[in-house]
Design a protein around this nucleic acid. Structure first.
Lengths: 227, 227
DNA sequence: CCTTTTTCTTAACTTTATATTAACTTTTTA
DNA sequence: TAAAAAGTTAATATAAAGTTAAGAAAAAGG
């Protein structure tokens, strides 16, 4: 999970980043519109949190430029302006949500999660795959009613798979979403984590892991028996 | 576009319906939770607008029941309660947005449109040739509904053909696009890959492969029966 | 603050799927 | 009909994935 925060107030920006990191989300800070646009061109984010008042250009213009480049990354506007017409304007140029400052921390987190969820076509915070269920709120995974004893990193990896349920996730994508490009360990670690996750699941189910390997492409979380 | 409004206050409900109709959206009114749940089971809506205080049951319970039936229709909560914890609770059980009453009409419309836009998501990029369909997003190819079990390289080759559907691709072009000029194997490998791809397709269709040889020129992906 | 425990990461090794080559057959066209 | 191109198959090489263990780093506990 990878979020870009475009906000010139360093304190607000850092607070958001810390808040998100606590949720296991990799967040990146940027303080000007131009820096933001640059990064958006280079990397794929799951969400962009955008302030409307930036020193070099207006947030609306940043939003416009992102959408004009046919980039569909979800964007949450965070602004001190609480005027309906401003909100409507933002939505009409492609914003996904609009929050006013001062913001409630837990509401911000909740909205962030809701947007990401929806952008992946998922409705609620419990993802089910066969006998497995993954609770995105409590960050715990179960087989039927028994908890799978995963470590933090192992859980994150399983969550990334669950968020793309049925789709393939590449090792490179795991790596960048888990570490955010900074101090990335060797890619082999993904194999190791996956092996351990599978072992733990297998211990409970007695065989089925729901994690399938797409040779040379990545991994998929799916209940194949259904189809 | 089809929206269900679950709100017991008849005036508020009718106002929303009128507002949405003006935007060319078909909106349906319902005044109790049970009526709402009934309709949600029967019809597919693009969005549900849900009040939290209903006469027969709480809006949260309506939301919960909808999600428990694994219905993923986007839901916007419209409530008089402006408490962050209530909002967080709703998001965690699967709400997509939360607006407080009194609401601004144009903001409601803007949010409704934003949610629907997002839930529609990115349209799948699919190329079809006869009974074959190639999904460029998931990088999987099918004959009708059955997956063609291609390896990564085999798929890439088929994709290159699909991208030039109807046109001819030379072996040299395959080679350079597959290996990018570096460490290119012998050109014979293209024949081998094509042979394998055709075999796998033939196994499913029972004959037709849609891959045609242009002697001395290259290969074409096309449904010749059509023309 | 140091020790203990847990988790993360690397490294070495095994297994397996795939990519590539080579040898041979069939088809096309000059 | 001979040469060139394409089709096919099997064998081998290579690269990807699976596994295990051990050392490093981080978190927890005293």
């Amino acid at each position: 999970m990878h979020i870009l925060v475009i906000e010139d107030d360093r304190i607000v920006n850092q607070n958001i980043v810390i808040l998100l990191r606590r949720e296991g989300i990799v967040a990146e800070s940027v303080y000007t519109g131009h820096e933001g646009l640059e990064l958006v061109k280079l990397y794929e984010y799951d969400l962009i949190i955008l302030d409307l008042m930036l020193p070099d250009m207006s947030g609306s213009d940043v939003l416009k430029q992102i959408r004009q480049s046919s980039n569909t990354t979800p964007i949450l506007i965070l602004s001190g302006i609480n005027i309906p017409t401003k909100k409507v304007e933002c939505f009409s140029i492609g914003a996904d949500d609009y929050m006013t400052k001062p913001y409630d921390r837990s509401e911000l987190v909740a909205r962030v999660k809701a947007i990401i969820r929806r952008s992946r076509g998922i409705a609620d915070n419990i993802i089910k795959v066969g006998r497995m269920s993954i609770n995105l709120n409590t960050k715990k995974a179960f087989i039927d009613e028994t908890l799978i004893p995963l470590t933090a990193k192992e859980y994150s990896l399983l969550e990334l798979l669950a968020l793309k349920k049925g789709g393939t996730v590449t090792k490179e994508s795991f790596l960048s979403q888990l570490y955010g490009g900074m101090d990335e360990p060797e890619i082999k670690i993904i194999d190791v984590f996956l092996c351990k996750i599978r072992q733990k699941i297998k211990k409970i189910t007695g065989g089925e892991t729901y994690i399938h390997t797409s040779w040379g492409r990545g991994y998929t979380l799916e209940d194949k028996k259904k189809s």
